[in-house]
């Protein structure tokens, strides 16, 4: 734990202190016709104890997405400030790494948060089952 706030507060429970922001594609692969490897990717994220913040689905009207983006950015700031490990998970074979990821990037930039981790994993890494290992090495 890097942050004194978190050191000072003992949460005294089972939380992992690790959070991933993911696109709808990873949580609901079935509706995108994604193959089984994406379902397995979700299961590996679960097994390794990451908490998930899910982005809204692709079909939501662009005008109605903004509050979800603001909410995700607020959480990124809060987890980062408290010393939790948090990253945005992007997929190399999806436009922008996943739905609404470029909007999130813009929101963070507007807040002056330029160095935040957007980690991109490839189809090959997912197929080989090495994607989650790569994420864990981020910190």
């Amino acid at each position: 734990m890097k942050n004194s706030w978190v050191r000072a507060l003992e949460f005294r429970d089972k939380r992992s202190f690790r959070v991933l922001i993911v696109s709808d594609y990873i949580v609901n692969p079935g509706r995108y016709g994604a193959d089984l490897s994406i379902k397995k990717l979700f299961e590996r994220i679960e097994e390794r104890g990451f908490g998930i913040i899910k982005m809204p689905p692709i079909h939501l009207d662009q005008k109605k997405v903004e509050p979800w983006i603001v909410s995700a950015a607020d959480q990124i700031q809060e987890y980062s400030n408290r010393g939790f490990k948090i990253a945005v998970l992007c997929l190399s074979f999806l436009q922008d790494g996943g739905v609404w990821m470029s909007r999130l990037r813009d929101e963070l930039k507007e807040r002056g948060i330029d160095s935040f981790k957007f980690e991109t994993i490839s189809e090959e890494e997912i197929q080989k089952g090495t994607a989650v290992n790569k994420i864990e090495q981020l910190w």
């Binding site: 429970d13 089972k14 992992s16 679960e46 990451f50 998930i52």
Partner: peptide
């Protein structure tokens, strides 16, 4: 604090 019963999901 104290109410997380699991690590993540």
């Amino acid at each position: 604090a104290e109410f997380a019963r699991l690590p993540g999901v």
